[in-house]
């Protein structure tokens, strides 16, 4: 048999072998459930960390070191602080917008919030998930406490 024909025959055999191997992987992936849906949980955990962490927005008494859940430290309520204290190495996961009373909204990961925002209504994998919460808080500014409503909108890329 000529060498060229033999090589072509070998190539077809390898292609079939590759097809057979990958079909095993495909069937396994298709029929065995491996993925855990945890998007909602991840957003809830992120929300709680943002609001209640002494290193994020919660007010901390400088003397006792006690953190007050539900009391927002107005000095910490800015985008720069949020980005610094909740630092994901992979930035494309979560973004958030926080509106405290009548103040200008602050953003966590503004760059990706602006990118995710138009995808809110989009269905399927290319869309983003939204968690909206609104809670009554008090905020501390110059040693005085003021009541306000904190509106939080978290956007998350579907995974």
């Amino acid at each position: 048999m000529k060498k060229g024909i033999l090589s072509i025959l070998m190539i077809t055999r390898f292609i079939f072998l590759a097809l057979a191997l990958f079909s095993v992987v495909f069937l396994t992936k298709y029929f065995v459930v491996q993925n855990l849906e945890s998007n909602r949980l991840e957003m809830e955990v992120f929300y709680n960390r943002m609001i209640y962490s002494p290193n994020a927005l919660a007010y901390v008494d400088n003397v006792t070191g006690r953190a007050y859940p539900g009391v927002i430290d107005f000095d910490k309520f800015n985008s720069e602080n949020l980005d610094k204290t909740l630092n994901y190495t992979y930035k494309r996961t979560l973004a958030a917008k926080l509106t405290l009373g009548e103040f200008t909204p602050v953003y966590y990961n503004k760059e990706w919030y602006d990118r995710f925002s138009p995808l809110k209504r989009m269905r399927g994998l290319s869309g983003v998930l939204t968690l909206e919460k609104s809670l009554p808080v008090v905020y501390e500014d110059n040693d005085k406490l003021y009541p306000a409503i904190l509106k939080v909108e978290i956007l998350k890329q579907k995974t």
Binding site: V24, T28, V32, Q34, A58
Partner: peptide, 30 residues
């Protein structure tokens, strides 16, 4: 395939998420 069939892949995913989210929550604890 072997890891998938004996659920190792599933449990690796599960424990990675579970423990990482616990660490995330520990950041919020005072």
């Amino acid at each position: 395939v072997r890891n998938t069939v004996d659920d190792t892949t599933f449990w690796k995913n599960y424990y990675a998420k579970d423990t990482a989210l616990i660490v995330e929550l520990l950041h919020a604890s005072s």
